[in-house]
Amino acid sequence: MRSLTQQPFRTAVLVLVWGWLLFLVLTPNLLVVGASVMTRDPGSFISLPLTVDAYRQLLNPLYLEVFLHSLYMAAMTTLVCLLIGYPFAWALSKVGKRNQVLLIFLLIVPFWTNSLVRTYALKLILATNGLLNNALMSLGVIEEPMQLLYTEGAVIIGLVYLLLPFMILPLYSVFEDLREDYLRASHDLGAGRLSTFIHVIVPLTLPGVLAGIMLVLLPAMGLFFVPDILGGSRNLLVGNVIKNQFLDARNWPFGAAASILLTLAMAFLMFAHRLSKRRIGEDGV
């Protein structure tokens, strides 16, 4: 190995990069882990002694209900995204190459635009005297305006609207890699369409499905502004709980524990994703 003086540039780069990541990624995360096992303190946020009270509080029926409801809404969001996104990605991969560039561009435009503003735009449509109700009433489909805003459904619609591209993009990339000869081989071996779908297409696209789930499910539990704008006070996400605990209730240990819950969920999904990729690799497909 060459000495430091011989490679000042290399040393400077590595120190800068490591410094940044250790100070602004590793340390903060360790702090959160630390905070989650401390005692709540109204003055300095946290204090000794060490305790697992925060984790016990996660199991408090009141919060457990909020978490389960949040999980339910996030799961529904993920399911809807998958149901819309799977055929969408499939169809997209069949479009001619020239159009594909444009279509993908149209898909990532929303990713670049302000998600808060887009959530707010949904409010214009879903409000009691909003566009959707007005349109349905003038068409004579409904007599009275429906309550769409401030419901569980509105939160799910908002989350799907924001997160759909994150489901579609990884799915699109696995469909792109799906080779036609596998499908033909399956057909030649006598498999019907349904059988080919279940035994060839689904397993081969599974890593994309899991990547999509990972990219949708977790944010769907954290995007606290969606319930704030569309959901009213009864349809909270884990993100809202964390935000309240840190910014309003000042119960850091509890907020930290809730955040660790999210991190563990992420770790689990990442693990599942790796596993599915490895399995496909080992099968030699």
Binding site: L21, V32, G239, G255
Partner: peptide, 21 residues
């Protein structure tokens, strides 16, 4: 790995960890 975790972890997790720091 650290870069990957920053990209994958929910924004709110990053947010509170930075606030704590």
């Amino acid at each position: 790995g650290m870069l990957f975790v920053v990209m994958m972890s929910p924004e709110i997790v990053l947010a509170i960890s930075l606030l704590a720091l």
